[in-house]
């Protein structure tokens, strides 16, 4: 049984948001438009947070892609009254859309604010509906959703490995965001396998986890090392 995890090297992140676009395409995320976004209803499973350091003109942007941290001790899970979110055996923080009744307690209790609620039903105008991913269900209004680590890709890789009579190899699974990152800032894999790329990188001295002091045990590990020197 794998323990899926991700490493994001912030020193490599350029803030291009290719991961955000890839996630939209892969996971059938709707485009909600300017007006709804202004109300704080952006429909992103991954967002690139931008913070400014320094004073103009000696200023630099810092980027941090934030997605569901797939916590081992996820605060969102126990508060769900219907087990719509729970911990699956591979350490993923699973979300069962059909079971969700929309109390939004999980979203409140997420310290990373990465859960996304369906405020309305979504429609894709023709021919945009043709590009919807058949492996991912469309969510209706009133449901909570969030990053799944592209669980459909994990399933596909496992089925392929089973067909070929082998175990999943490192690199078989690549979530859409990881695949699309032009600077290879993101790496995905099995944290239980000490030789996987993700494990090797996670052992870096630059590693930290977001809001680690809360004891949520996130599965997303960030790398950040270079102190900024004024150019």
């Amino acid at each position: 049984m794998a323990k899926w995890g991700m490493v994001i090297d912030l020193d490599r992140c350029t803030g291009c948001e290719a991961c955000v676009i890839a996630c939209h395409a892969e996971n059938n995320l709707p485009i909600v438009g300017e007006e709804e976004s202004a109300k704080g209803r952006q429909h992103n499973w991954i967002r690139v947070e931008r913070y400014w350091e320094g004073e103009y003109p000696h200023i630099r942007a810092r980027f941090i892609p934030v997605l569901c941290q797939q916590c081992d001790h996820a605060p969102c899970e126990p508060v769900c009254p219907v087990y719509a979110t729970y911990h699956n055996p591979e350490g993923l923080n699973a979300q069962v859309y059909n079971r969700c009744i929309g109390t939004r307690f999980c979203a409140n209790n997420c310290p990373y604010t990465v859960r996304v609620f369906n405020w309305f039903d979504h429609h894709w105008e023709k021919p945009l509906d043709e590009q919807l991913n058949p492996d991912v269900s469309i969510r209706t209004r009133g449901m909570m959703e969030k990053c799944t680590f592209c669980i459909q890709r994990i399933h596909r890789a496992r089925h392929q490995a089973e067909d070929e009579g082998r175990d999943i190899r490192d690199g078989d699974v690549q979530p859409a965001c990881v695949q699309s990152c032009p600077t290879e800032a993101m790496v995905f894999g099995d944290l239980d396998d000490p030789d996987s790329r993700v494990s090797q990188r996670a052992r870096s001295r630059r590693a930290f986890r977001l809001l680690e002091e809360l004891g949520t045990e996130p599965s997303v590990i960030y790398l950040k090392g270079d102190e900024w020197v004024e150019p």
Binding site: P78, V79, C80, P81, V82, Y83, R99, C100, I101, G102, T103, R104, F105, F117, N118, R141, G142, M143, M144
Partner: peptide
């Protein structure tokens, strides 16, 4: 509730889906 038509899923009663509410939840 986002999907109020499913409110009865909060009620602990034996059902053919074999599902129970989560008693860990304050709700």
């Amino acid at each position: 509730l986002g999907r109020v038509w499913k409110f009865y899923w909060l009620i602990p009663y034996p059902n053919e889906r074999g599902l129970w509410p989560n008693f860990h939840s304050p709700l």
